[in-house]
C-alpha cells in the first residue's frame, strides 16, 4: 500500500481518514474539489494520483456521488462504498464471473471495470431486479424453482449473466446456454440445474 499523502497540505484528505469516512457513509459529498479536478489538470502543482476523485455512479436507477480513490473498481465501489453487497468478489481478475453486473444492459465484469470509467452508464445489479414487495425476476424465480445453486456465492453473477445471455439471443439451445454461460464458474457444479433454470426463464422473459 502506498504511503499516505502529506496531511498538512490544506487541500488534502488523508487516505486513512478518507477510507475511514467512506466505510461508514453510504454516499459522500465531494471531498476536496481541488484534489478531485487534478486528474486532467495540466497546470502546477503536479496532479496527485492518490487524491480522491469525485465520482457519480448510477446503480439500479439510484444516483450516488462518491469520493473515491481512482483505483476503485466498480465492484468495490458498490460493495464497500454504496453498500450493495449482492455482487460477489470471487477471483477479482475476471476469471470467475461472480461479479457480473449489467452496464447499459450488457453483462460486464465489475471487478475489471474502473468505477471512474462508468460514471455515465446505468449499472444493474442483483439488488435491482425485483422490488422488495414485488415478485422475483423470472430468472431469480427459475433459479429457485430448479435449485440452481448450492452455496449460492456465484448465484448473483450467474443470474445477471443469464439475463444477459437470454437478452443477447444466446439461450436457444442447451449447448448455447452452456457455451455462453461458461464465464460463470460454479464450484458446487450446479451446472445442469443452471441450464434448466435459464431455459425456463428464457420462455418467460420472451413470452
Amino acid at each position: 500500500m502506498p504511503k499516505d499523502r502529506d496531511d498538512t497540505r490544506p487541500d488534502s484528505v488523508s487516505r486513512r481518514r478518507f477510507l475511514g469516512a467512506t466505510a461508514s457513509t453510504a454516499a459522500l459529498p465531494l471531498m476536496g474539489a481541488a484534489a478531485a479536478s487534478q486528474a486532467s489538470a495540466q497546470a502546477l502543482p503536479p496532479p496527485d494520483p492518490q487524491a480522491p476523485l469525485d465520482m457519480r455512479l448510477t446503480v439500479n436507477g439510484e444516483a450516488y456521488r462518491l469520493g473515491l480513490d481512482v483505483r476503485t473498481t466498480l465492484l468495490d465501489a458498490m460493495r464497500d462504498h454504496i453498500g450493495l453487497t449482492g455482487s460477489k468478489k470471487g477471483c477479482d481478475h475476471g476469471q470467475c464471473g461472480a461479479c457480473t453486473v449489467l452496464v447499459d444492459g450488457r453483462r460486464t465484469l465489475a471487478c475489471l471495470t474502473l468505477a471512474v470509467a462508468v460514471q455515465d452508464r446505468a449499472v444493474t445489479t442483483i439488488e435491482g431486479l425485483a422490488r422488495a414487495d414485488g415478485p422475483l425476476h423470472p430468472m431469480q424465480q427459475a433459479f429457485v424453482d430448479h435449485d440452481a445453486f448450492q452455496c449460492g456465492y456465484c448465484t448473483p453473477g450467474q443470474i445477471m449473466s443469464a439475463i444477459g445471455c437470454v437478452k443477447e439471443g444466446h439461450a436457444d439451445t442447451d449447448d448455447a446456454i452452456r457455451e455462453y454461460m461458461s464465464g460463470n464458474i460454479c464450484r458446487c457444479a450446479a451446472y445442469p440445474n443452471i441450464v434448466a433454470a435459464v431455459r425456463q426463464a428464457k420462455t418467460q422473459m420472451e413470452g
Binding site: G94, G97, T100, R106, R107, T108, L109, L112, T113, S161, G164, C165, E168, H170, Y180, M181, S182, G183, N184
Partner: peptide, 9 residues
C-alpha cells in the same frame, strides 16, 4: 475466445 462477459468488454 474468452467468456461472454469479457467479449462484451
Amino acid at each position: 475466445a474468452a467468456s461472454a462477459q469479457l467479449r462484451n468488454m
